[in-house]
Design a protein around this nucleic acid. Structure first.
Lengths: 172, 172
DNA sequence: ACAGCCATGTAACTTGTTACATGATTTT
DNA sequence: AAAATCATGTAACAAGTTACATGGCTGT
């Protein structure tokens, strides 16, 4: 969120309402319910950190708005962010823990667990593909959707690995 | 973290130090630096939430320990967690935002961005494969490593999609 | 008159994260 | 005598999340 807002402000100064709308667009159909309040929370925190500066702008015919601009420190932060090669953790840790817990406690059947999860991921994949069909073929949204779809496919293949792993483990 | 600890306690009661050690093992080589302090923070919060119950155990020859057991509410929570099919967000949102920011602001060259990132992900993939070679072939760790590797490969393929997308966009 | 968009926020809570503090016992 | 292992925590801050509150203007 922090970075997303700084990135949008790097293009041009903007106020909260506008940022919220643009974020929804930038995240395309992948946007999970975004609470508008959070934009303002984040802006206030960025201001406290000295990365953005607000300026009240009077408007006639509509409510006044508060336009935020990047400070030099803010621009610096954006540049750093762009050159940062870190990549969010990619291991499917949570399901892995579930699988182990199920196998060790008997609270659930691990095979059914994998099975149910695979059906769910296949459902999501279809959902993504439907969304993609509804998008402008060359909007930014499609690119992100493609990234999500590739990951989902990888996860589905991994679930098949999990199944093989369980089968082998049971046969011993 | 919350769920991970509950899951471990579902197998058997344990104290913080032990949970920390087991977590490191369960996460295998994918464990990022885990601060032991966090286990205790989380346990205290779980206790406040009524999901676990501590009991002090005296030991001779070593420090006393505080053994935590799941309460009925805690067991219930674990069962819910196991049957929950949610899957953490899979879209590579952050890089997508970077790409857009770079393309729109000129603060960085988007093509170099993609290129540098791909090299980095390839490096990580090799790293994972090295780790896998060092693991017991049928330990749980290998399974998780495989999941991480599959996702990384998906991301690398996505970066190639990004490159094609940029190329097309520039030719217009 | 009322729905819907424009516009902004706050209070309260949950999590994650880190740095630091403490001390006993066992092995070298 | 020192280092490693066993064992537990706190204080403080950063960040995400949500529910709620406010109000003006525009079009029907």
């Amino acid at each position: 969120m922090r970075e997303a807002i700084l990135a949008l402000l790097a293009k041009e100064p903007a106020h909260g309402y506008d940022l919220h709308a643009r974020l929804m667009r930038a995240l395309g159909p992948a946007r999970e319910a975004m609470n508008p309040g959070q934009v303002y929370v984040t802006l206030a925190r960025l201001e406290r950190a000295g990365l953005v500066q607000p300026q009240d702008v009077k408007q006639s015919g509509r409510p006044d708005k508060r336009v935020y601009t990047l400070t030099p420190a803010g621009s610096e932060r954006v540049s750093q962010w762009l050159s940062d090669l870190s990549w969010s953790k990619v291991a499917p840790v949570e399901f892995h823990l579930k699988l182990i817990a199920a196998a060790q406690t008997g609270l659930a059947d691990p095979v059914s667990l994998v099975d149910a999860q695979r059906l769910e991921l296949l459902r999501r994949l279809r959902e993504l593909q439907d969304l993609a069909r509804g998008e402008d073929a060359d909007s930014e949204g499609v690119l992100l959707l493609e990234g999500a779809a590739l990951r989902l496919q990888a996860d589905i293949r991994w679930l098949e690995t999990c199944e093989r792993w369980l089968a082998e483990r049971m046969s011993r």
